[in-house]
Design a protein around this nucleic acid. Structure first.
Lengths: 212, 212
DNA sequence: TTCAGCTTGTGAACGAATTCACAAGCCGAA
DNA sequence: TTCGGCTTGTGAATTCGTTCACAAGCTGAA
């Protein structure tokens, strides 16, 4: 097994992302070696699950010892594509967009938001942090000029699909969607949805059951 | 099958939440009856999946016709616990917290953020929209006074666990976590994580694979 | 009333993900 | 060197979720 021959299941990729976070914590604490059971405790899963997940990457553990924090951190960064920086454009400079631009962990992980686009003519030309907001008519141009790899959608639901169609036509292959709509796009474009409402409603379901 | 005898799988609950959104769109358009295949197209899934999901709720479809938009909307609201209002407290009045307080869809669905708590003494006493920000020393008191059902965590990672422990001790049974940490809490408390980083990193993985 | 055309609800088949269980391997102590 | 205590990596078993396929049932037309 290695990172090239086989696709890693999505559920596993998401956990790898968590493991990386834990490893960075361990690194900060000066821990040099970590067993699957320690990662499992931290992540609320089982040791077998951790080992199965990590086995997708190859054989980086030492029997009797566990995993080298240093080595595994590097491997995970590599597999997850975090050993380079990704250039990100944000569509929508509303409240959510604004919060995302200034979200430190993104930059720390190599996601650089270089470009912000908004439909509101009042906002175009003003600055969000250090970034000058561009108008939607410039969309295709700035995606090319700024060599954007990935687009975050944080515009109101009704305009999301239209903008994403243009983004896809411009050749972007990865979209992170915060708008409360189900976007339709070609199979070769990766899409993740961050749905505040879906999560909240599944909690509501749990609460409603709880009290019969 | 009905909503009391059997627990609905989590994956299904999340899709129910989407179906409800689609039904509301159909309702606005004046459509009165909808077939599983229409909901499937809208949600990027299959008609069989939709029917299997809805079969968890009981038998609300009419063969040859589909589902009554009105009736199914009501049933879904009921099952998801959206036929009442939930009182929500927000921990953390940072950028993410601020964006969440003002997020319209929450209120429209019956989630009323009545309470905001922040650790920063400079913020305590100031207002976020109409809500006066309270200090963390008041946490237990306001949770009780405001009869909070559900807590949204949007504080920095290092302080999240400590605050959630107090929230759980105060009897709260549902937590929505935006902080980039894995919270540990008792099994009878429902927890959902909204992890911006995990989603972004799984896109990064897709991109990295894409170009070998 | 009968028939054609749809669409649901669901057991059964299938597939994916998780858990189990254990051989293989490393380390440090004696 | 040998042994005991750990821990990995992985087939096999199991559980969970999705898809298939079709009988049952509704509607409207003739």
């Amino acid at each position: 097994m290695n990172e090239f021959t086989s696709r890693i299941p999505d559920a596993t990729v998401r956990r790898l992302s968590l493991y990386l976070r834990f490893l960075e914590d361990f690194e900060r604490l000066g821990v040099t070696s970590v067993a699957s059971v320690a990662l499992a405790e931290r992540g609320g899963t089982t040791a077998a699950q951790v080992r199965k997940d990590l086995s997708h990457l190859g054989s980086y553990g030492k029997r009797g010892l566990g995993y080298s924090v240093d080595e595994l951190t590097g491997v995970l960064r590599g597999v997850l594509g975090l050993d380079c920086t990704w250039r990100v454009a944000l569509l929508g400079a509303g409240r959510i967009g604004t919060a995302l631009v200034e979200y430190e962990p993104f930059r720390r992980r190599g996601f650089h938001i270089t470009t912000v686009i908004d439909n509101d003519p009042c906002k175009v030309g003003t600055r969000l942090g250090k970034i000058r907001i561009r108008g939607q008519d410039e969309l295709e141009d700035v995606l090319r000029e700024d060599r954007i790899d990935l687009v975050i959608v944080a515009v109101p639901a009704p305009v999301a699909q239209g903008m994403v169609d243009r983004v896809v036509a411009a050749g972007i292959k990865a979209v992170l969607n915060y708008a409360p709509v189900q976007l339709r796009l070609p199979a070769d474009v990766a899409l993740r949805n961050v749905s505040m409402l879906v999560e909240l409603e599944s909690l509501s379901y749990a609460l409603a059951r709880h009290r019969q």
